[in-house]
Design a protein around this nucleic acid. Structure first.
Lengths: 207, 207
DNA sequence: CGAGTGATTGACTTAGATCAATGACCGTGG
DNA sequence: CCACGGTCATTGATCTAAGTCAATCACTCG
């Protein structure tokens, strides 16, 4: 399951595992960086909290994904990483990884590609945050996460988490989802959302 | 001025320059990627537009900065790049660059570092977009862009551009700025904003 | 069985988006 | 040289959707 294939054997050998309880902090902003984390199981969210207590979710890493790639190039972390569920993570120490990156061009390339993907993912996220209407925001999310069948979106975790992910209050999400269901735009079934119609010519609110 | 020092001679040799009029499009989402752009003079903004016409500014690249690093690893662009002012850009063709990245570890490292910085910058941006209060958002921007003197923030371009950058309407920005000035929190002088006081214990609106 | 949390809905408030109008500038072409 | 079109900066009025506070129900876990 772990798709750490892109990591070289040398790096993998140096890994250290750590178990996290739900809600436990993996690292905190300001702390010295120790390396790159891979989530083996569970989910870990990367967030920054502003003074007002509100926290901005920057990323939610599930099994197979990595955390804090960028922090490798900085002395301290700039975000907080908190386990969203009980989780198992693997730490690839900074030193080893950096050295290997230097030596192994294949690894370097893979790593760079990952970073590039992150950049694009972040941009998508940013794009989404620019949408002010909750409904449009949800639509945006839905279209981006359509399953292979082209009409089902599966989301992991709670709706509350999804709300945080979308940058909405959970109330707003519940309500909008309910509205969309009432309007027959979507249907819900457990952890799934089924899009009822997606033709560009119904636009209930756009011009 | 151009800080393309991190690029190897081979890459630099292959560069092609292009002049853009203000408002001219450099590339559009969906177009095939041709390479990496460096802004030599002027400003180019990277943006994604949602169906409603609203455009999300993802990055504004000024002289010395590069555009579309991530697109090197993807077949098509995912954003639009539009010259915000008259601008001169240099194109480093994808093919050459990719090959050089493969060959030159030093270049690869530099490039990776850039990407990592981008990731962090994007995260900061994302964090900002999570702040709902216009005033807090501006404060956040100000603290992040404090000059060396610790109390002056210089911004380039128009206030309107800044507004787009902050994800606010220009009206909201004008108003909030005016309010902050009235409250003696800031002072304005041309393209500068001077912070009058920044002690954590005045909090005009926080709890 | 009670505490804790998610899901949901109601009522209310508010801050920011929207629409609109005005004055200051600036460059440009006749 | 100046009138005119364009854009920025600014402010007013209004509206609305999302945030906030709050209550309820269903579940699960120990």
């Amino acid at each position: 399951m772990a798709q750490s294939d892109w990591l070289s054997a040398a790096v993998r050998a140096s890994a250290v595992e750590r178990k996290l309880a739900s809600g436990e902090t993996l690292f905190r902003a300001g702390t010295k960086t120790v390396g790159l984390f891979e989530v083996i199981s569970g989910k870990v969210r990367l967030a920054r909290g502003d003074r007002s207590g509100r926290e901005a979710v920057l990323q939610v890493a599930s099994s197979g994904e990595t955390l804090a790639e960028a922090s490798l190039f900085s002395a301290t972390y700039h975000c907080n990483a908190i386990a969203a569920t009980e989780a198992l993570v693997r730490l690839y120490p900074k030193k080893v990884l950096l050295k290997e990156l230097e030596r192994d061009p294949k690894l370097a390339r893979a790593f760079t590609t990952r970073l590039a993907q992150q950049v694009m993912a972040l941009r998508t996220r940013l794009e989404q945050r620019n949408i002010l209407s909750a409904r449009e925001r949800i639509r945006h999310f839905l279209t981006l996460n359509l399953g292979v069948d082209g009409q089902t979106v599966e989301f992991s975790g709670t709706l509350k988490e999804l709300a945080a992910d979308l940058g909405l209050t959970h109330e707003a999400l519940y309500r909008t989802l309910a509205d969309m269901e009432k309007d027959n735009e979507i249907r819900r079934a457990g952890g799934k959302i089924i899009i009822q119609k997606y033709d560009s010519n119904h636009m209930p609110d756009g011009e």
